[in-house]
Nucleic acid binder design. Structure first.
Lengths: 224, 224
DNA sequence: TGCGGTACTGACTGGTCAGTCATTATATTA
DNA sequence: TAATATAATGACTGACCAGTCAGTACCGCA
């Protein structure tokens, strides 16, 4: 009997953490597995059984930490999306670069990377299945969309206040800055297989045209 | 016995068309019902039983005209989307207006209307569930997206050839012209409930900024 | 007036999957 | 080392739905 126990402990001893630690890391492991599955099969197309399998866990365990499938999905969104957006928002608020330089540099780099990252598929998921889960959509709207747009608005306002940009209705529609990012994400998800799209150049073109359109006259030193 | 028959005929006589006609109109009726259901519940969320009920038809009948659910969805896309796009494509190709006028006029009106129309929900459907049905996506890509982008490209090229626009990389990325349309459709579908977006003005702003960015120098008569 | 064909019906099948729960394994505590 | 608590399991349930098919009703025709 004692022998059987020790035999069983073999597994547990192989670097497997203590119980308490285990309980604390399990949710993250499940969220990570769920992210992969959701990204690959969409929300409706993902079976919790597969999530469990990927996390090397039994079918029932996810329900111990997440009451429902939706709850798990929310956890994925929170853990994957929020940090990246907080990062760029912080940069926008604290940068000392001239606005045009900031947009052509760090901002462009951020959206170029975003479009190609695994995080982008979450946006596609929200777009596709959001309307079935109002609670989820509201969370996403309040935490990402609303705050993001507000930040962009203040970025433009700052450019105008500094005399870098002429005042345009763009400040009322910061969605116009983001729209090509969305389009790129969707293209990559849906049509890349049929026709390649150079999203880096697309976004660069977008940013340049937009700046051409709003740059204050007499500030054209950068043009050539 | 003869009486029973006549009694049954009562129903049939009430303006219900003859058999042959009936058979020819049924598919359209089913497609119309399916459009409503798909628009309301998404592809996966739509039960063919409900489509049938809405069309006042038994559960089995749709399968007589459409082999599978996907086939029915394709029919919906074809009947709802294609005509509108063919119309604007024709206009683009045959218009005699100066390119800028055309874009600010008929083209702007078209996208403003499109965003608000019931057709837009189909785009949202494709976006959300397209990746699960490659066949469907391919059909959509070939019939709508690919041809649409080509038409836009030739519109820009024409403007450049006429000296109205300066040459810009925009011609390589006609997606940039459409991106705000996409964004508007998605906003209306997802967030309108939380925050209203004036898509008419958004699209007008977009078109104006874009034209400001690509207008050939010396053609600024329209500016003020 | 009845016959043949076909438009149409709706109960049924097979398969899927979210969520449950009785049971088992194992860490911790005494 | 035994008792206790709780992490984890996985067979199972209930609900759902695409797609089928044996049968019915009804039209047009002779």
């Amino acid at each position: 009997m004692a022998e059987t126990k020790t035999a069983q402990r073999k597994k547990a001893a192989q670097g497997i953490a203590k119980r308490r630690e285990r309980r604390d890391t399990r949710p993250q492991e499940i969220v990570a597995a769920a992210f992969e599955e959701f990204a690959q099969h969409g929300y409706a197309g993902t079976r919790l059984e597969d999530v469990a399998a990927r996390a090397k866990v039994s079918k029932g365990l996810p329900y111990l930490y997440f009451k429902t499938k939706v709850e798990l999905f929310k956890a994925v969104v929170k853990s994957v999306i929020t940090p990246a957006f907080d990062a760029i928002r912080g940069q926008i608020e604290t940068t000392t670069l001239p606005t045009e330089e900031f947009i052509k540099g760090p901002f462009l780099a951020f959206i170029q990377e975003l479009v190609k990252s695994r995080r982008a598929v979450i946006a596609r998921l929200l777009i596709g299945e959001g309307h079935k889960h109002p609670e989820l959509t509201q969370f996403y709207f309040e935490h990402i969309v609303s705050r993001g747009l507000q930040t962009l608005q203040s970025l433009i306002d700052r450019g105008v206040a500094r005399g870098e940009f002429r005042p345009t209705p763009l400040r009322d529609f910061p969605q116009l800055i983001i729209a090509p990012v969305l389009a790129s994400i969707l293209w990559r998800g849906l049509f890349e297989h049929y026709r390649h799209l150079d999203t880096d150049r697309l976004l660069e073109t977008h940013v340049n045209l937009l700046l051409d359109a709003i740059r204050a006259p007499g500030t054209k030193e950068g043009e050539r």
